[in-house]
Computed example of a mutant assay.
Amino acid sequence: MRRPRVKAEHRPHRFADGTVRIGGEIYGVAAEIDDPDGWAWAALSLMDGTLPTSALVSRLRTIFPEMSVQVAESVVAQLVDSGYVEDAAALPPPELAPQELERYSRNHAYFRRVDLTPRVHGWEAQLALKKARVVVLGLGGTGSHAAWALAAAGVGRLHCVDPDVVEPSNLNRQALYGEADIGRDKAEVAVRRLREFNSAVTITGARRRVETRPQLAELIAGADMLALCADEPRGHGLRVWANRECARAGIPWAGGGYSGPLVTVGVYAPGHPCYECVSAGEQARRRPGSPADLGGPGVIATSAGISGHLVAHAVITQLTGVPAIPPGRIGGLNLIAPDQLIDVRHPSREECPVCGPGRDGH
């Protein structure tokens, strides 16, 4: 790093006892440094983007004559490696055009705040999105919001698939359609509308019903991730197909939906507990004979919107690694009981053909 600078969002604060907090008050991002000698505070105060690393080391040794070169270099290196520091001399990557730098400037600010991995220029997450190809299967309540969010975020290639036409009952929650679209193919309307939102990304679509596992395998061929937002075939089957075919393809996938006020998203990836293991673990917790609630027609714009945005967020985290949320879990919330957050995790089963020992994805 040529000219270290503390990220603006992470300005440090020093307490009376000498402890230094860096990262603000954001849960999961802030850190505290035990700094009895004031070395970290002095180094952070000097990191304003005007001094190269060698000059920082020299200035530290001027402030603290007893500090050796090795200790000063170590202090600077540890702070740089913490992820709260960026390179003030870095230039945006040439792969992003000036209009993209402006369009995604708020994305950049978000990723800079939450990303604690040292980066070359800070646009790595946006580049990862630009290079990605995502299949969105299902363009209803969840999928329409997810597709819009992914297009707005700058995912480079989106392929949108749905077998249905727009109906009047869709309009209370499905964000890509209007009254003039009733009777038209959802995929066709969605592609046109998404292109209007972001002409810099490649949007394709197909009116297609996925009825077999081989059809799903064909659909995700060459994709970097699947956003599963369809609810047909009903029940467990479609998600099992996604679980196994994405494992065979070596790509992550996210699936979300709603059941009344309960909104959830699951995210899975190779090397982590799979959908079938997480589902089996959760089923084992229920009383024997308890029926599974697979949802119903009860949904409003907010529950569908939250569902779709949770799916889009899961896709973004897996494509960029920012934030580094491990897959193999189901998360969500209950809109009529805000204190009831959902966080379901279960380990891989030994006998699982997808994520257990000796797995082959069949």
Rank of each mutant, 00 (worst) to 15 (best):
R5I: 09
V6W: 00
R11W: 09
R14T: 13
G18D: 09
R21C: 11
V29L: 13
W41L: 12
A43S: 11
S45R: 10
L46M: 10
L56P: 02
S58Q: 14
T62E: 15
A77S: 14
L79R: 06
S82T: 06
V114D: 04
D115W: 00
L116I: 05
T117P: 03
T117F: 09
E124Y: 01
R133A: 12
V136M: 05
G143Q: 05
A149V: 01
A153I: 03
G154Y: 00
G156T: 04
V166G: 02
N170C: 08
L171Q: 06
L176F: 08
L176Y: 04
E196D: 15
R207Y: 07
R208M: 10
R213S: 11
L216M: 05
A221T: 12
A221R: 14
A223R: 08
L226M: 08
L226R: 04
G235L: 11
H236E: 15
A242L: 07
N243E: 08
E245I: 01
E245Y: 02
C246M: 06
G250R: 08
P252H: 02
G256T: 02
Y258M: 12
L262V: 14
P270H: 10
P288K: 08
D293Y: 13
I306S: 01
Q318D: 05
L319S: 00
L319D: 00
I330G: 00
L335I: 04
L341H: 09
R345M: 07
C352V: 12
G356E: 03
